[in-house]
Amino acid sequence: MVEQQLISPSADKVVMPTLKLKHLVAVRWFHWINFPLLSLMIWSGLLIYWAYSIYNVGPLRFFPKQVYDFLHMDHRLAEGMALHFFIMWFFVANGILYVAYTILSGEWRYLVPRSLSTFRDAWQVVLYDLGIAKSLPLQQKYNAAQQVSYSAIVVMGALSVMSGLAIYKPAQLGWLTALFGGYGGARLVHFALTIGYLLFFAVHLAQVLRAGWNNFRGMVIGYELAGDK
């Protein structure tokens, strides 16, 4: 078992480097399984989106032709749909298992923002990370910005599945399509969430690089080295 408790006889010494269990084994698997699954959902989704590539935000085109050409994403609609509606089962299953595990294990307590002050603190963390604020608010296992973003990403996942179903089955699940403001609304939400994942990934990657090796290794082996100063 990985999550055993080992306290050595030297536990009463002054300098004590400790291996601290940061991430439960199940959570690590859910995380690392989700990464390729979500990547494939985004990739196949963009192969589908190419066939009717309509969204712009001001001068920002989603996406310029050069992007599709460079990544060879043109004329692959059928391939994209077949992959999307295959991988979706694994993506949804992994997501449901993760949420169920998070609730049953009690891990949700560390993740879900419990009051409005979490959002204030999250903003403070953002300012600190940008070098604007001088101090960090007190935190538990995850800081407030992590709590907000790791909870938001789960809500986004649920919305992606629901808006996806609303586009996939607008006749059979007409009530769901109506909930998103119709076929066009569901499609826009589904696409906006995809852009959201790409932004999340960019920030997440930057934070992981900044936090360093000990933190990254913790997501792989579960333990972080603490008290080794």
């Binding site: 055993q4 408790q5 050595s8 536990a11 010494k13 004590m16 269990l21 009690g106 891990e107 792989v220």
Partner: peptide, 25 residues
């Protein structure tokens, strides 16, 4: 239940970490 720790001497900690890193990766 989450804050389980493995408290060890510096050398043991390094060895334990190396072992777990090797196995994890």
């Amino acid at each position: 239940m989450i804050d389980r720790e493995i408290v060890l001497s510096p050398d043991e900690a390094k060895a334990e970490l190396r072992k777990r890193t090797r196995r994890g990766f």
